[in-house]
Nucleic acid binder design. Structure first.
Lengths: 116, 116
DNA sequence: GCCATATATGCACCACCGTTCATATGTTGT
DNA sequence: ACAACATATGAACGGTGGTGCATATATGGC
């Protein structure tokens, strides 16, 4: 046991969301937590792109990109449309931009504080 | 080589941020991508807390919590203050709430779409 | 100074994840 | 139906990261 904090423990415990929500949330952010996927998202900020274009842009295997696009799609961050043999991927909604932008702002603020 | 997409490649490539920014961004989101850290953040939404209180709340080792608090602190998501022997951790700024809230909204929207 | 309490840290183990290779699926043109 | 191209998928390898154990550091009380 430790020092007394029963009051706070009870109050915070009652306000904590269920495990499933916490899990879904961290799973979502996990998707943003990889440089390859982040590069893909940034690319799609500019324009929809087909798989091989992204692979060429990032200098990576088509397979690797395909795997990561699947992860992004499962998280509903991107969607795709078929046009003949090629499949174009694009941002699923505007939340993606907002979330990345918020992360960006945090980084900026962090850097300005470090310049002391 | 693949089918032609020189135009798009050049345009997108010129707009892509430098690798360091991409890396910093994904590193930041990586911090949100763990259930333990997410639970800690949600706890701190309610109130500042000491290490052993968080450990008791989450039913985990003091060591594990301490390790994760270090990660959160390195990312400038939390800060701490000492009061005698105990050290209280709290949210470093309001970006944390905003980022988590954005992720939450994305999940909500996703769920409503799945209810078809 | 010594002991108890609160927190931090180094290490090692294990699980998970990103990549590549090989191959499968799907589409178009002939 | 077959060949060529675009993409998806499964398996395996390697690296990273979260956890617990043991221990170190720090503060307060006696």
């Amino acid at each position: 046991m430790a020092h007394n904090h029963e009051e706070i423990l009870c109050r915070v415990k009652s306000e904590l969301p269920e495990d499933e929500l916490i899990c879904d949330l961290s799973d979502l952010f996990k998707v943003f937590g990889d440089t390859t996927r982040m590069k893909i998202l940034y690319s799609l900020f500019e324009s929809e792109m087909c798989v091989c274009a992204i692979a060429e842009l990032l200098g990576m295997t088509q397979s690797a990109i395909s795997h990561q696009l699947k992860v992004l799609k499962n998280a509903n961050l991107v969607a795709n449309r078929r046009e003949g043999k090629t499949i174009y991927y694009f941002l699923a909604d505007e939340h993606v931009r907002t979330i990345v932008a918020q992360g960006f702002e945090h980084l900026i603020e962090k850097h300005t504080h470090e310049k002391k």
